[in-house]
Design a binder for these strands. Structure first.
Lengths: 106, 106
DNA sequence: TTAATATGATACCTAAAGGTTTTATGTGGA
DNA sequence: TCCACATAAAACCTTTAGGTATCATATTAA
């Protein structure tokens, strides 16, 4: 079982999810990202570190810049975990399950 | 846009994800759930509250018991959000994207 | 009716999360 | 070379998270 916790933890913060959306459109340096948030570069960098630990982004040091880009691996880990619950979304199955359970208990 | 934050927040904790797995197999009272964790009922109840706020479980008060069951709604909100990134997982597309980007920059 | 059961509610504790500020360092361009 | 730029790193602060302990309340079974 691959480690899902770091990825789920990273996705738990709205700022980090928003950063992911941005990086899905284009790779960006820390400064570029930070310029779009009402917080310091240092704060944004901490968020990027958490995203990197969750394998949601990868980083390439280019000269004095640090280029961040989307890393699908962590996203895949999360969706794979979610897939387990897929069959609970089907309304027909839910209805059937409900009927069976109620019948069992009466 | 439906509110994804409460669901993502709820999924960020390993104990809560484990509780979800249990509830996917059978509905359970707080006491039943708590008996399987090295923490107090009060702590488990707090986790259940967070799960409920994320629409990941629903609760039915039955006599003096409180029955918790999986609620697919919150899970759906999360997978819907994740779906946006689906097209980044295809290795062929990634490879192509990489080639295009590198070509542009040389 | 009464005791045991199942939970609710509140106060409290500690560590982690999310920020800021300050100081240091490596790189690129004039 | 030398300065401006982009980031690194560390100390610090405040709020939130996750947990415990304690006491109150509603049900159920005897």
């Amino acid at each position: 079982m691959s480690e899902v916790q770091p990825a789920f933890k990273a996705l738990g913060d709205p700022t980090r999810r928003q950063i992911l959306m941005q990086l899905s459109r284009q790779e960006m340096s820390i400064g570029e990202i930070a310029s779009e948030y009402p917080m310091t570069r240092a704060a944004v960098k901490k968020h990027l570190k958490v995203l990197e630990e969750g394998d949601l982004i990868s980083v390439e040091v280019r000269g004095r810049e640090r280029i961040n880009r989307l890393q699908p691996r962590g996203l895949k880990v999360v969706t794979d975990w979610m897939k387990y619950f897929d069959h609970f979304w089907d309304n027909k199955l839910d209805a059937l399950k409900s009927i069976v359970e109620n019948t069992e208990k009466q």
